[in-house]
Structures are given as C-alpha cells and as structure tokens.
Design a protein around this nucleic acid. Structure first.
Lengths: 181, 207
DNA sequence: AATTTACTTTGAAAAGC
DNA sequence: GCTTTAAAAAGTAAATT
C-alpha cells in the first residue's frame, strides 16, 4: 500500500480523575483562567508547555485539546492535574486518560479535480460555495477526510495515529483505482 | 373509535395547515427571487417529499422551504447563492446549507456542484452585457474547468471574473466594482480569479 | 494593494439548557 | 441543537496600514 506521511495537528483527550472539584477554588491556583458558568460549565485553562487548553469540570472530568502528540497530550493533562493538586491534595495520582480525536494533515503530492472526485468517489460532499474542501467519509477506518484541490488532506475523527494514516492511505489508493490521481 | 377518528382529522388538519403555510412561504420567497413557476413547482416537489419522508422533525418549515428552493434552483440550472436564499427567507445561510445537505442526503438527491456557467446569464443580463460576452465568458469558464482552475473556488467568483474578462475583450468593459456587486463577491476575489485565469489560460490580456 | 484577523468545514469529549 | 477548546486545509471577507 502507498505510504503517506501524516502530521498530527491536534489531539483531543479526556480524563476522569475520580473526584469532584470545586472550580472556584481550583481557578485561584491556576493562572489565566476563564470561567463563566452561565456561558459554559467548564473552566478554561491554557497551559504554555505543551501549548494546550484544558476544560475542567466540577465532576472531576477534563478535556485537553491542542497537543501535537499523544505524549504531549498526556503530559499536559498530568501537568494540569498536578497544579490542581496544589489546592486539593486528595486528587488521585492514578486516573484514566482517553484519546478522543486526532486531527492530522497530509499531502498527496498531486492536484485533485474535486468535481471529478465528487462524481466518482462515494460518500462525498462537495459544496465549493461553502467550503473549498471535499468531505469524504471513510467507512474503514471510520474517519473523515477533507480533500483539497492542492492535494493537501486533513483527516479527523481518528482515535489512533494508525487509523489517521490508514484513512489517508486508503483514500489515496481509492483515488488511484478510480484514476482520479 | 370516535376519538381516534377525531384525532386523525385534527392531525390531517394540522398537516394541511402546515403545507399551506409552507407553500405560501415558498411563493413569497420565490417572488422575491423572481423565480419562474417551474422552479417553484420543483421546489414544492422537494418539500412534499421531505414531508412524506418525515424529514421536517426538529426543523423549521421556513428552513426546509428555503433548502428546497435552493435545491430546486440548482436542479433547474438557475442557481441562487445561499446568501440570496438566506436574504429572502428568514433563515440563516448556515441553516439553509445544513438543511440542504440533510435533505439531499436523506432524499438521495445527488446534485453536482453549481457550475459557474449557470450564473453567467443572470449576472450578464443584470450587467447589461451582450450574448457575445456571455458566450465568451462561458468559453473561458469551460477552459478553466478543463485545466482544474475551478476546484475549491466559489462558482460566483469564477463566473464574475470570466464575465469581467469577456466584457473587456469584447469592448463592453464593466468595472470590477459593478461585476462584484452583481455577483455578490468582493473586487479582491475577482482580481484573484482573473489573474489566475489570464495567467494560466493563454490570454495575453492587459486589463 | 499588502497584512492581519477571522469565518466557512470536519471530529470528539465535557455538563447543562 | 447550542455553549467552549484546538488545529489544519483553501477560499473569501473585512479591517488596517
């Protein structure tokens, strides 16, 4: 199968530290926090290194976005929880972290005729009036690709880097089969 | 038994009222857009099938009407932009687009993306351009499509640039502002498109 | 007219309206 | 459905300089 290089651009991960959190209390221990209960129930905390943003909820669950690697995502979550622990000693050191979504980009190194792709490739949506990219919903792996006329691709919806890579590679091979690339 | 019957009558009454409202809404939008009867009928067919397939749930009648109109205009090759549809209906561009995608997906309607060619007649007549200019603009667009210069670009921007170039070539020059206003794009977009077209198609034009 | 900022699309989780 | 977060793709738009 064709090998395509993938670059991870963003990772969304969730964590559940098994303990309720007092957001007003935690917000004092963290710097540069945004918190408007009426607007959004989560506390927004931005970490500089790794450059990420975390959403912290009173249930003790959090969401981390912005990391460029799975290691960075885990590191960001641990750093954030460590900071939270300075005002709440009872937060467990052991908790579950789940990778929820991986966004990656790639380059097929060939221009695409999107109107032709829209006609031949199944499960596509192409509305240039609204967005320049063609939306391709891959069934296996179950990911969504945005294909551009330049040959650049964005893959999202993957839970693993392998799925993101496989999604792009299968799409490439599919386009080759259909003589669209 | 009697209660069930009454309920049926009540429901069908509500259904008819909704349909009547939808059709009047469709007429209102169509009039504002100056659409021919054939397009209104095509839109009502889309709307009725949406009702038959129970696709109105959780959606506003206005939204489905607007999306049906948008789809009908495209199918009849007399496209209106989402902005134009949103302007006459009281539905946001985002809503119209999302409802359109939902309807086409659920009703298995596969419409190819709007060709810039379909915008040429309307834009040209609004600009008072001749049939010769229109033909020339269409030639330019077809060459552009063959060379893959339209992928990802907005159809109205491509149509506007082609009309602008053709108007200059045939001595019926229109300003970028005039064309931009009619096409609903900015002068910057026309400039970007026409530079691309004149450079990559063999036109030695000096505009 | 060049820059900068910003919005369009995709995906997923969190708690609650 | 919405609210909030992050990031890429490329087109388009609007505000500054």
């Amino acid at each position: 199968m064709t090998d395509v290089d993938i670059k991870i651009e963003n990772i969304v991960a969730s964590a559940a530290i098994g303990k309720d959190i007092k957001l007003t209390k935690v917000s004092k221990a963290l710097e540069g926090v945004d918190f408007n209960r009426e607007q959004f129930p989560g506390l927004v905390f931005k970490l500089k290194e790794p450059k990420t943003a975390a959403l912290i909820f009173s249930s003790g669950k959090l969401v981390c976005t912005g990391a460029k690697s799975i290691d960075d995502s885990i590191l960001a979550i641990n750093k954030t929880v460590d900071l939270m622990r300075t005002v709440d000693k009872d937060i467990p050191h052991e908790f579950e972290i789940k990778i929820q979504n991986i966004v990656a980009s790639a380059n097929l190194e060939a221009t695409l005729n999107l109107e032709a792709v829209a006609l031949e490739l199944e499960n596509t949506e192409y509305e240039p009036e609204q967005f320049p990219g063609l939306v391709y919903r891959s069934q296996d792996p179950k990911v969504v690709l945005l294909l551009f006329g330049s040959g650049k691709v964005v893959c999202t919806g993957a839970k693993t880097k392998d799925d993101a890579k496989l999604g792009v590679e299968r799409a490439y091979d599919r386009l080759s089969e259909l003589d669209l690339i | 038994r009697l209660r069930k019957w009454q309920r049926k009558i009540r429901i069908s009454g509500a259904t008819e009222r909704n349909l009547a409202f939808a059709l009047s809404e469709l007429d209102r939008d169509s009039s504002r857009l100056g659409l021919p009867r054939s397009v209104r009928e095509a839109a009502s067919v889309v709307y009725r099938s949406a009702v038959e397939n129970k696709l109105i749930r959780g959606r506003s009648i206005e939204g489905v009407v607007a999306a049906s109109l948008y789809a009908a205009c495209r199918r009849c090759n007399v496209p209106r932009t989402l902005d134009e549809i949103a302007e006459v209906s009281r539905v946001s561009k985002k809503e119209v687009g999302r409802t359109y995608r939902f309807l086409t997906r659920e009703l298995n309607i596969k419409l190819p993306p709007t060709s810039p060619v379909d915008y040429v007649p309307r834009f040209a007549s609004e600009l008072g351009l001749s049939g010769e200019v229109q033909s020339r603009a269409i030639e330019i667009i077809e060459k552009a499509m063959e060379k893959g210069l339209t992928s990802g670009r907005g159809p109205t921007g491509v149509a506007a640039a082609a009309l602008y170039i053709a108007s200059v070539l045939l001595g019926e020059r229109k300003t970028q502002r005039d064309v931009a206003d009619i096409a609903g794009v900015t002068e910057v977009t026309i400039r970007n498109r026409y530079k691309e077209l004149t450079e990559q198609l063999e036109m030695g034009v000096t505009l």
